[in-house]
Write a protein that binds this DNA or RNA. Structure first.
Lengths: 197, 197
DNA sequence: CCTGAAGACTTCAAAGCTAAAGTTCGAAGC
DNA sequence: GCTTCGAACTTTAGCTTTGAAGTCTTCAGG
């Protein structure tokens, strides 16, 4: 099952000292700094963009901890997710997976290697077309995904807990609209850089 | 100035074919798949979370392209940003920078190496305390940041263009509230995984 | 002074990713 | 039937980042 690294940041080496000198700027402080250094900036726009970015980062950290607790990495969770969402027999080719996750086929090969050795998926040649390879989720892999999902949904519900039904509806609608806008302006690949839908 | 790689994804090798067989699921399709595979899931919550994540990814891709056009990487842009936001003489120590960006001191050392060789920053020992090192933004580095900022704000304004003033206000307020909630629940480090405030 | 301890970087080996060059299999021509 | 092209992985070389082990500097005792 691999060594399974601690996965908790901020511990680069044995001791890392809390560094009282670097208090990490709040969102408000940061926006003030932006305005100081770059005059023609709409603070409202910057607030939205910065909050969105920070929020996403925090969420990824939270997901990373949860999956780490389950003994899988965030990278592995992404693969499990793609396979589960593909439905039914939970099978995909490495190339298809690579495209879905936004990484190169080479990286996919290695990632699958690891996951096969951990029993999360199986890899075999398609006998009806021996150029193809089939990656299939194992029951254990599916169970891991379910456990991760249970943790994730609890976290997400908790995160949105204070929002009123109206706020939730508006937030969902507005974000979807923004997403459509970028996807339309940028129809190509999804690229890398933190996926985790 | 380095080779300066193409930086355009989706071109893993010479030809990459548009792959008509993998249409990339829409947000709606994906949520439907989630509900199929995981019954007790609130579709509204999932919609918000997924849209947020996808939106963030697209934005990072957009930022990456813009900075690439300027001849700097996204990683370098983050360093420039931290230095500019620190204000005044635009100086920070490598350790401080590392903490701010959420990477290890080792990675910071290498990143600074590259940026020094590209003339974006200078590195020298603090003569009053020779254990410390001072990284200082060069005028050229500051100019790069300004150019990147100009592009970024144009993109951001364009992204939010369709939102009414009310929607902008609500979105900013709600996102800030969510951010406060996670930051409170998770006061520690910011971790890695796509920064880009 | 000299020594020991702690702090702030840097160096080193290993992991994971990308780009580019194989490798293998299937399908279309001649 | 043999050859050539193309598709779908895999392998190789080079980078960036991490974790752990130095190196250098400062400071507190003895």
């Amino acid at each position: 099952m691999k060594d399974f690294k601690a996965k908790e940041f901020a511990c680069h080496t044995a001791a890392m000292a809390e560094t009282p000198g670097v208090p990490e700027p709040t969102l408000e402080e940061q926006i003030a700094a932006y305005q100081r250094e770059f005059q023609d900036l709409d603070p409202q726009v910057e607030k939205i963009v910065s909050a969105l970015s920070r929020l996403n980062r925090r969420m990824n950290v939270a997901y990373g901890r949860q999956t780490a607790d389950l003994g899988i990495s965030n990278a592995e969770w992404e693969v499990l997710k793609a396979l589960v969402l593909s439905g039914a027999p939970y099978r995909m080719g490495p190339g298809e997976l690579a495209k879905r996750l936004g990484l190169t086929p080479a990286a996919m090969t290695h990632r699958i290697d690891r996951m096969v050795s951990e029993g999360l998926v199986t890899r075999e040649r398609d006998e009806s077309n021996r150029v193809r390879v089939i990656v299939e989720l194992t029951p254990g892999g599916r169970e891991k995904w379910l456990e991760a999902m249970r943790l994730a949904t609890v976290f997400e519900e908790d995160l949105l807990q204070d929002l009123t039904p109206t706020e939730r509806a508006v937030l969902g609608e507005v974000l979807t609209r923004l997403l459509r806008r970028v996807e339309h302006a940028q129809p190509d690949a999804g690229g890398r850089l933190s996926d985790l839908d």
